[in-house]
Design a protein around this nucleic acid. Structure first.
Lengths: 203, 203, 203, 203
DNA sequence: GATGAATGAGCATTCATTCAT
DNA sequence: AATGAATGAATGCTCATTCAT
């Protein structure tokens, strides 16, 4: 009888979740602009107008996808940071969290990579700017501490290093596929290897 | 063939070039799908219908931008490779060529980064696949040779290493701006520093 | 028939009445076409689909509002006419009945003023034509008798005079508000003063 | 070659005028809300999307109709007032101007009567409030002066008298038709007769 | 080369209505 | 009586493209 116990809300939220999943996939593959609400509705097996029973607009759909994604990512980050590991181990954990996201929510990750810059300028999407700022703060704090602890090359500019690492890492979503030949852990290990240096005997 | 006779065509090709520049900028900033031919025509100071005197379609515009871009990039790569430097020096030169592109043709670079994956699937854009394949071959050949020569960490998977490097490097276009605080050379130097290793004392 | 037995129906009819009141107000303010069934349902605190337990369609709602309104107005008129007063006193009484309607049922009056002409052409709204015809007959009979009795200017065309009076009078609903500075009786007195002549010394 | 001499702009403005005329008629008959841009386009013999070559929105169409109407009416009023006739003759002239409008532009008049109250609240339609204010000022000035000169019944409240006259007069558009049995001059004469008093021997 | 008018397909969204629960 | 999900048709509007002038 209660909301929690009743199947009604469950069904409702399952429907919403289904639509969000479909939309994330289509937005990620074809782009937000080029994907129509009919595309989404067709895959959900309903008419396009019926989408509006669940979401107030096409924008509201992508907003919810990105909000959920960033919220989840930052929650993972917060857990990691609260463990108070060394900066190096924290960085390893942050990297693992990112690769796990790529593995588990590739569409949301790709969507964020592709559309965030554009959406950031639109009213109602300010959270993209503030959340990406929080993410950057977490990383840069660890990079700076790593430099202090002697684990991170001191001559690196932390701001630029963060951007290089961030873009190289998250871009994995563009080519990593479950059906590919590498597991996500193998890819992550290669990435960490790369952070230990590509060019040798050169300093 | 002479100046007088070719004047008309010169003007014509100047107009074309102007439109291509405007389109590259607008496509890069707002996305190909979300940018209208009217947006382009407005900035060019003509009506949207008049664009069709210069280009057969909106697709033809982006195709020409990307063809020119990839052709130019590969031409630069060919010059570099033909110099027969050591693999390490060749890689440095390839990196420099890329950063110079980012500096000089940021819109085309950004456009390629953002839209190539989607456009690749469209008839008429097969050149994207073939040219990006050629680019990858150039890099992988040098990475493999670098491993043979002992300049590149042998435990790296060349295919993955290439992707990490490629994505981290070209993504610079997303945040590098002439009005930023770093010169393109400073950014490139930081990038090379990163390739020499972020994480230390760890092997 | 008893309170206990009729409770359900009472509640039912109270609900109906509430919905009719809300609908009349919204239709009067925003127009029938521009008011949605959801607007009505929202104010009634139910979902739009639930309206269809009380009314078979949006049209049925406005039909019932207008039927009730015209029925009530004509009932008042019938009482007045049956009193067999002089034509002048009958006209005064008809005018008072109209102004009281404006005071007590402003939304229904406004709705009838604004939408009747359009709705009259729609199947199912023939009663608008027949009832407005009956209203006109009542007035014109009194105007004609007033001319016979010498109380009404003989040179007036009764058909046109009726229309002028009708429109000037009922349009009061557009600007009369309880929060205005005039009472309904003051407005009515001014209207009667006007019927005694605006322009003087002129015949 | 000049704009004025060229047929291009003429044709353009003829098209616009045709669309405005059609829209005024349809809006007046079916209501602004219930009339679709497809209805208008159909009568103009073009597709609905082509309307947007001439007008930026459906709202822009009704706005232009009403702006033109009020501008024309006030221009007529200004000419009349500048003649400096007696207040009584000025009022006669204002009345004639109104009836001529009803005769010549019945759709615009009806549109204004039916929709102005609603549109007034919408951004971009503030001119309705300001222009109707100017109209009221013209009338009230003459009514007040008429009272001072002894031509208008002194016991009338000028504000209310104006509203009664205005509504009775402009509502003529609802029943006057060229194909009716009265000429516009006959209707006007009856209206003036009414202003000289309906009820007689009664003061 | 460019204009201005138009096309035709499509888009996000709205809305009255239905119906199983 | 009411809900919540869905329908299906329509709505205002956009956009790439065409073409006579």
């Amino acid at each position: 009888m209660e909301k929690g116990a009743s199947g009604r809300t469950e069904v409702n939220s399952q429907r919403r979740k289904l639509i969000l999943d479909i939309a994330a996939r289509l937005f990620a593959h074809g782009g937000y602009s080029a994907t129509t609400v009919r595309d989404i509705a067709d895959e959900a097996g309903i008419l396009s107008g019926s989408l509006y029973h669940h979401f107030s607009s096409k924008e509201a759909i992508i907003r919810e996808i990105l909000e959920d994604y960033l919220e989840g990512l930052l929650a993972n980050y917060d857990v990691i940071v609260e463990e108070n590991l060394s900066s190096k181990d924290t960085l390893y954990a942050l990297i693992k969290a990112a690769f796990d996201m790529i593995d588990e929510q590739p569409h949301a990750v790709a969507l964020y990579q592709n559309e965030a810059a554009f959406l950031q300028t639109i009213p109602g999407f300010e959270f993209l700017t503030s959340q990406s700022g929080r993410i950057e703060e977490v990383w840069q704090a660890q990079l700076a501490q790593g430099q202090a602890e002697g684990d991170i090359r001191a001559s690196l500019d932390p701001a630029m290093a963060y951007r290089f690492i961030r873009d190289g890492m998250w871009s994995v979503v563009r080519w990593y596929r479950q059906d590919g030949k590498y597991s996500i852990d193998e890819v992550r290990e290669q990435f960490i290897l790369l952070l230990r240096g590509v060019l040798l005997n050169d300093e």
